[in-house]
Design a protein around this nucleic acid. Structure first.
Lengths: 260, 260
DNA sequence: ATTGATATTCCGTAATTCGGAACAATTCAT
DNA sequence: ATGAATTGTTCCGAATTACGGAATATCAAT
């Protein structure tokens, strides 16, 4: 990756402005991106031509419907979603709490499936949301079961910013928690991503015993007290193992993989 | 749009290969796109860097999870989906047929919401799919109620390719059908997009009386015979009017708009 | 080890993008 | 209505950026 197309990267910076703004004018985009008006003008012209942006009657730009098509394709092609959904629904019904499925994307965790407690729920809601891997039970279970080299590299480079009132910001504490999760096979969080929200998560492995995804139950902190945690842990782990099995997981405890 | 960023446009051509292929190697992308290996290599390097593509263990590329995030945002920001969904669900329950909601995107119709007959159904399925505006009841109702200048321009430039066994390929016949739909306020199709599938559609207008979307019930041709059509037409039109009303539609029949 | 296939890097050429500045269009206030 | 201000569009010379053929590296299979 020695040479790269700067134009593409810059254009995406423009598109990413729309993650936090739904409609923008040329001027606003130029200001937010610190690029010259002319350059922005040229780039969004191209982005509009290909369908990544659309210009409405008032001359404001927003994300194009082409993203619906690409988003759908990505969602459809994630086989694990299909397998996991029935198990997730069952877990939700058993425990009466929302259930999330996440995978790793680079240095982040991304939500790829959700079953909510309240009906009717648009499944699509929350899908695509991102979180750092160090915060929250579910992202952190991914981090815990990452290969050691990758995990260490991540821990060395990442800055632990507080997000909720309970976010772990001390690297030593984080290392201890991760180590504990590797031993027990689950992780717990209280108010790490959202205040008063707790979660219990377990890892999902694929046919080669590699970490594939994380599964979690999420709910208000008041319903995640000591008396109920053992049951929650058991059920989440059961569900995660069930999905792993469907992915062809050989069934060995993760710490025994690659030790023969 | 005198000057444009060729690089961006070419890169999207590469991404669009993934609409029909879910995994591709560098080599395959070079062949399918007729671009030099080196250029493809550079571009997909950038596309990977920004998250639009990912490389799996076997060195094959596929669409990145970033599309989930953008797709979600676009879906969330389509207000009409929120309004339409309850009405669509009710229509589905009344008639026992699948219900679709589509909007125009350039010269195509794109499905933005779907309520299926079979449970449990992933709503996301089919969302983002595209169809030409001349084929199928729902796409064609969009075409019928397009402003005359745009409609004529479309009809002059489009080539009517057969898709299903009933696709209209004769321009005069299409014009007659469109004119009829404008008078009656609905459209019917039999085997135009898929063989043995029929549909009945009605237009949805916004607060300015402009065409905003199309609503349709879809099902097997055997259930869309003459005896049942009047009821289907009535129910679809009722539902479409209900959604239009929620969008602030002034309530005038479309042919009276801008005639005062 | 040898072959064949695919991926990656090199590097001189030249086409493309850049961005300031001038210009046009639109909006707003008076 | 008129003028001022704001936003959007076009122009054009400078030079950065992308191009792509060829050489090299990596990998898998025999």
């Amino acid at each position: 990756m020695q040479h790269k197309n700067k134009t593409i990267v810059k254009s995406i910076e423009l598109l990413k402005l729309f993650l936090t703004h739904d409609r923008l004018t040329l001027q606003e985009m130029a200001q937010l991106s610190n690029m010259p008006k002319t350059s922005v003008h040229r780039m969004i012209g191209s982005l509009e031509e290909i369908g990544f942006l659309t210009k409405d009657d008032e001359g404001k730009y927003s994300l194009g419907l082409l993203f619906l098509q690409f988003g759908q394709l990505v969602a459809e092609r994630l086989q694990i979603r299909q397998l996991a959904l029935p198990v997730m629904t069952r877990l939700r019904d058993e425990m009466g709490e929302a259930v999330n499925l996440i995978v790793r994307d680079g240095n982040e965790a991304i939500y790829i499936e959700k079953v909510d407690t309240h009906q009717p729920v648009r499944v699509y809601t929350a899908i695509g949301r991102r979180a750092p891997m160090y915060a929250g039970a579910c992202p952190r279970i991914l981090l815990a079961f990452l290969p050691e080299v990758e995990r260490e590299q991540y821990l060395k480079n990442i800055e632990l910013k507080p997000i909720g009132s309970g976010t772990i910001t001390d690297p030593d504490r984080l290392r201890a928690v991760l180590s504990e999760s590797r031993k027990t096979g689950y992780s717990i969080s209280h108010s790490e991503l959202h205040d008063d929200t707790s979660a219990v998560a377990a890892p999902i492995f694929n046919h080669r015993g590699q970490l594939e995804a994380g599964l979690s139950v999420v709910g208000p902190g008041t319903r995640f007290q000591a008396d109920r945690l053992p049951l929650l842990i058991e059920k989440v782990q059961d569900a995660a193992r069930e999905i792993s099995r469907q992915l062809g997981w050989p069934g060995l405890p993760p710490q025994n993989v690659n030790r023969g």
